[in-house]
Every structure is written in structure tokens, then in C-alpha cells.
Design a protein around this nucleic acid. Sequence first.
DNA 1: TCAAGATTTAGAATTATTCTAAATAGACGG
DNA 2: CCGTCTATTTAGAATAATTCTAAATCTTGA
Lengths: 148, 148
Amino acid sequence: MNAVATKPPPENDLNERLAHSGLRLTPQRQQVHEVLREKMDHPTADQVFLRAKNKMPEISMATVYNCLDALVKCGMVRQVTLDRGATRFCPNMQDHSHFYCDECGSVYDILQTISPADAGIRLPRGFRLKNIETNLHGLCPDCAAKAK
Amino acid sequence: MNAVATKPPPENDLNERLAHSGLRLTPQRQQVHEVLREKMDHPTADQVFLRAKNKMPEISMATVYNCLDALVKCGMVRQVTLDRGATRFCPNMQDHSHFYCDECGSVYDILQTISPADAGIRLPRGFRLKNIETNLHGLCPDCAAKAK
DNA sequence: TCAAGATTTAGAATTATTCTAAATAGACGG
DNA sequence: CCGTCTATTTAGAATAATTCTAAATCTTGA
Ligand SMILES: [Mn+2]
Ligand SMILES: [Mn+2]
Ligand SMILES: [Zn+2]
Ligand SMILES: [Zn+2]
């Protein structure tokens, strides 16, 4: 699953994946996606809006939400909800989990996931599992150092 | 860790745990906690408010938020954030994960046989892990049946 | 009994997200 | 190219979720 390198360059992917979901590739969707890939710090919709405005000053907040929803729907972006604050967005579609610093709120990709089997999870009859989300909570290196 | 049965009855626990965090046991906190234990369907703050009002008509929304925060802080309640909607609350402090039905939004407790901490996540140097949260997404039995 | 501090409360304020309706863009058939 | 059709974008209003504020109330413990 990991050994065969048939993955097309991610940019083509965007076009195709949108099409596959009956969605068009628009400058705005492209821009929002680029913003996410540029700095993979899991920004909120609001932060995406501010960053996208630099290259595309006319873009609106509603469009950013629309684009993010489109990108999530077609599987190019993941939604990350970690606390009561705004939802964050992640363009890394590799299997990974998120480390959330309870102190400063920063989010890190952790390239390791727990399979349900490893976690000892057994679903009762009838449930249909689609995907698993693992969120690690604690202190980031900076905050851990300060805490000492 | 699991074998020694020194756990006091959960109601005493509430008093003690609050005290341990420098918080008082108040009728409102008790009521909010009771509401959560009565129907463990992971209600939102709003739903907790409505249910609590039945026995305690003067309780306010602000108090419900305050109480929920207090209960979370002292470790009697878990916060569950699953999508862009309102945060949900869970009074089950056993090690378990949550199944979220993407179709109808219902949430189920899924018991784990192995603590995820033991499942072998390896963090880069410097990170201090406090706890792991596992969210399962898919279809609940009802929705899975309808989907066929 | 009193002072200090914690908690509750109503309502205002803020933040996050969704909705609405009109304008625009772009694909497609002719 | 032209006109039509539909998807998308847009501004702003509306709604939903949460937090804040300041005053009232309660509790605790000198
Ligand atoms: Mn990520
Ligand atoms: Mn639960
Ligand atoms: Zn941090
Ligand atoms: Zn369902």
C-alpha cells in the first residue's frame, strides 16, 4: 500500500478529485488549497481567508467556507476539530494523527496512527466504520520546556 | 491499574474531585452532572441546559457552561468535539472512544480493551503526551441498515 | 457577625458558521 | 462567437455557539 509509487503529482489530483465529485476547479478553490499547502499549520477558516486575500484580494469569507467544504468533500483536505474553537483544516491526506498542545493551541502532524485492532476496539454489530481519527493531547516541545 | 478495586462510589467522587481542584460542590454542578449521567447520549450544552431546567428551573445557560467547565476541569466529564457543531459532553470517564454517525449525528461509547497509550505511539522528542482521543466515523446500525 | 472569595445569573458581546439572493463566470451546443 | 444554463462567488444578514461582564447571592471561616 505504501511501496507502490503510482501517486500522481498532487496538483493534477486537485482537478481530478474535484471533477470526480462533480465539482469544478476554480481559481478560488485552487488558491485555498495552495494556502493550505504553503503552511501546513492547520489554520482556521478565518486564517485561510486572511492568507488567501494576499494573492486574491476579492475573495470572500463565504467563498473560503465554500471552498474548504468542496475540498473536504472531494477528499483533498481534512477537517480537524480539537476543542471548542474554530475548526482547523489540513491538506495532508496521508494517514496521520494530530497532536494538539493544550497550552498554546498549536497542532502538529504525527505520522503514526493506531489501527482499531491495536487500540483494542471492537465495534458492536451493525456499525459501519468509515475512518478513524486520533487526536493526541498534551504539551508541544516549547510549552513542555517552559512548564519545567 | 485496573485490577485493584479502590474506586469509591461515583457520587462521593464528585464532591472529592471538585474539592481536589479547589472547586465547591454546588446544587447546580450536582444537577448538571446528574443530567449527564441520566442519559448518556452526549448532549450539547444547550441540551444539558434544557434538561437541567426541569428539576431546577432557575438555572441559567451561563451556569451550565460554568458547571460543565468545572466538571471537565476536575476530571468528572469529558468534552467531545466531533464536527463543526456544538461540543458534546460525556460523563463516562472509563477509557473509551466515540463512534460518530456521519448520517444522523448520534454518538456512541465504544469500549476499548487496550488503553490507546499502550498502543505504541511514538512521539518526536520534546512532546509531552497527556491523553489520546479516538473518534470513529461511520454509520450507526440504524443508518447503515437504511443505506442498504 | 462580617469579610473574602466563589458561584450564579441575565444579558450583552463576541466568535464561528450558515444562509440568502443577486452577480458573475465558465462550459456547452449551435 | 453567441446565448443559455448552471455552478460558483459574493456581500451581507442571520443564526448558532460560546464567552464575557458586572451585579446579586451564597459559603466559608475568622
Ligand atoms: Mn494534519
Ligand atoms: Mn462517551
Ligand atoms: Zn504549545
Ligand atoms: Zn445514524
